[in-house]
C-alpha cells in the first residue's frame, strides 16, 4: 500500500497497515518523549513514513520537532490533537484526522532528503479539554463510561486512518494517564514503557501496570484490554550506579519467568549528553543530518528501532 508519508509520496512497505506504538508511563521524567523522537527518526531513517501523535498537554514532542513560532502557526490553524478531539467530541464534526496532521515536520535529513515524519501536535489546552468534555456530556446526562466509549470510537476511527496513511504511528502518551492516553494504550499494537532502573520508577511501573493491564481500580469500563503485556525499556541508565545495575538484574530475572507480566528490552538506553542535545531543535545552527543529530548516541537509536521492530513482529 502506498503511504502518504505526510505528503502523498511516502515509503512503500507492502504491509497492509501501519503499526501503532504507544510510549507511556504514569511516571513523568522517565524518557517517554525521548523514546518517541528516537523511534520516529530511527524508523524514518529506515525509509518508513512515521506520524507522531502527541497526547501530552506539555507538548514536549511537538517542541522537539518545531521551534515556538512554527508551533504557534500550527496551533493557530487548529492543526492539533486538541482541536481534532474538540471538533469530534464536542462539536460532532466528522473530518478526517489526516486534516489535522502537519506533514514533513522534521528538518533532519538523510542523504540530503528530509526524514518522512509527520506530527499531530499537542497543546496545553488538551489538559482542559477532557474536563470540558466531561462537563458537556454531564449536561447531556451522559455517564463517564459514555465518554470513554466516545473517546474510544473517535480514536479507533482516527487510528485506522493513520494506519492506512503511515507505516508507523507513535503515540507520545501523557504522564498521569488521561482518558485519551488510556484509549491509545489499549488500541496500540505494543506499549513501550520507558523506566529508569531505580526504586521509584519501578514502583511507578507496577502502579501503571496494575491500573491499565489489571484494571485494578475500575469496576466498569467499556475499553478493551491492551493487546499485549507492556514492554519495559530501561532508560537514563547510569552503568556506574549500583542501584541501576541491581535493579536491571531484578528486571531481567522477572522478565525471564514463565508467564512474565511484562516484556523487557535487551537494550538499555544510557544517560548521555548527545541524547539531550538531540531533543533541542534549536541546538544546531543548520538543520542536521540524522547522523550529526544523534552523534555517538546513534547506535542506541538504531538498536532501539531494530528491537522495537522485533517486538512488533514477535
Amino acid at each position: 500500500m502506498a503511504r502518504q508519508g505526510g505528503t502523498g509520496e511516502g515509503a512503500m512497505t507492502g504491509q497492509a497497515e501501519g503499526r501503532a506504538i504507544a510510549v507511556a508511563n504514569m511516571k513523568g521524567g522517565v524518557g517517554k518523549t525521548t523514546t518517541v523522537i528516537m523511534l520516529a527518526e530511527g524508523f524514518a531513517a529506515e525509509g518508513k513514513s512515521v506520524v507522531v501523535v502527541d497526547l501530552d498537554a506539555q507538548a514536549n514532542a511537538s517542541y522537539c520537532f518545531t521551534a515556538d513560532e512554527a508551533l504557534k502557526l500550527i496551533l493557530d490553524k487548529r492543526r492539533s490533537v486538541t482541536s481534532f478531539l474538540a471538533d469530534q467530541i464536542v462539536y460532532g464534526d466528522r473530518r478526517s484526522i489526516l486534516d489535522y496532521v502537519t506533514p514533513e515536520i522534521s528538518e533532519v535529513t538523510q542523504a540530503g532528503e528530509l526524514l518522512s515524519i509527520a506530527l499531530l501536535a499537542s497543546s496545553p489546552r488538551l489538559r482542559l479539554l477532557e474536563r470540558e468534555i466531561v462537563i458537556e456530556l454531564a449536561e447531556k446526562k451522559y455517564s463517564l463510561t459514555a465518554f470513554e466509549g466516545r473517546a474510544l470510537r473517535v480514536l479507533d476511527t482516527a487510528l485506522k486512518e493513520l494506519r492506512a496513511a503511515y507505516d508507523i504511528v507513535l503515540f507520545d502518551c501523557a504522564p498521569g494517564i488521561s482518558a485519551f492516553t488510556e484509549v491509545a494504550i489499549r488500541l496500540a499494537d505494543i506499549v513501550i514503557v520507558p523506566t529508569i532502573p531505580d526504586y521509584l520508577s519501578t514502583l511507578g511501573f507496577d502502579a501503571f501496570r496494575a491500573s491499565i493491564w489489571e484494571n485494578a481500580h475500575i469496576r466498569k469500563s467499556s475499553l478493551p484490554p491492551p493487546k499485549r503485556p507492556p514492554i519495559i525499556l530501561p532508560t537514563r541508565v547510569n552503568a556506574n550506579k549500583v542501584q541501576h545495575k541491581n535493579t536491571l538484574e531484578e528486571m531481567r530475572a522477572e522478565a525471564a519467568e514463565e508467564k512474565a507480566p511484562f516484556g523487557l528490552f535487551e537494550l538499555t538506553v544510557a544517560n548521555q549528553a548527545p541524547i539531550e542535545k538531540a531533543m533541542d531543535p534549536e541546538y544546531f545552527e543548520e538543520p542536521p543530518t540524522f547522523v550529526q543529530k544523534w552523534g555517538t548516541a546513534i547506535d542506541s537509536v538504531r538498536a532501539l528501532t531494530r528491537e522495537t521492530r522485533r517486538w512488533l513482529d514477535g
Binding site: R78, T82, S123, P124, R125
Partner: peptide
C-alpha cells in the same frame, strides 16, 4: 540564551 518563559505556542487558545 533563550528565555525560560513567554513561549507563544503555549498560549494559543485554539478556540473555534
Amino acid at each position: 540564551r533563550r528565555r525560560l518563559t513567554g513561549r507563544t505556542a503555549l498560549r494559543v487558545s485554539e478556540d473555534r
